[in-house]
């Protein structure tokens, strides 16, 4: 995955466990700043290695870590230089998810070789969304769940994100929520 994602994982480890924990992780994996170049594509194996090292240090299973990282990515994107794009993408959960593909379309124009997922809202009612997720990666379910969960927090909503159905080439996520303030 892109170095941008690695930087986010690093920030998460930084925030949770401090700089030393990250430096120890770097040492263990024999990586350094050159594995965190924003605009570079790295083998997914490296991304997985970083996540699994991070999960061990955070005392989480890999799935739990992916979920946390999903939640973290939303926080990461909204507080850094990506904030403007996040704000622009949508002002409520429904429209934000509706526009995710358009957001990633811009991402794919900026980052050649990126492998981005696609999200389609297949049903939308107050407090209830069914979203179809397609990707050429596997094993990202918990990451996506975490991302949606992070979006609930972003829009001051509370609720549950579950997997409604595993289809042949996609996964349907169900989001039940209540708007907050």
């Amino acid at each position: 995955m892109y170095g941008m994602i690695h930087r986010a994982v690093r920030q998460m480890v930084f925030d949770e466990l401090g700089e030393d924990a990250w430096l120890a992780l770097e040492q263990k994996l024999d990586i350094g700043p050159s594995e965190l170049l924003t605009g570079m594509v790295y083998d997914d194996a490296l991304t997985i290695a970083i996540i699994s090292e991070a999960s061990a240090r955070l005392n989480l299973s890999i799935d739990a870590c992916l979920f946390e990282f999903g939640r973290y990515w939303i926080k990461y994107a909204e507080r850094g230089p990506l904030a403007a794009i996040m704000n622009f993408t949508g002002q409520n959960l429904g429209s934000f998810i509706e526009n995710l593909d358009r957001l990633h379309l811009a991402v794919s124009a900026a980052m050649p070789g990126v492998r981005l997922p696609s999200f389609t809202t297949i049903s939308s009612a107050p407090g209830h969304l069914l979203v179809e997720y397609r990707s050429d990666r596997t094993g990202m379910e918990q990451f996506v769940t975490g991302l949606f969960d992070g979006l609930l927090t972003r829009f001051h909503a509370t609720g549950d994100v579950t997997i409604a159905e595993h289809k042949a080439s996609s996964i349907i996520f169900e989001i039940r929520y209540q708007d907050g303030i």
Partner: peptide, 8 residues
């Protein structure tokens, strides 16, 4: 997005 990447 490019501006954000540049910052990073």
């Amino acid at each position: 997005l490019q501006r954000a990447m540049l910052e990073e």
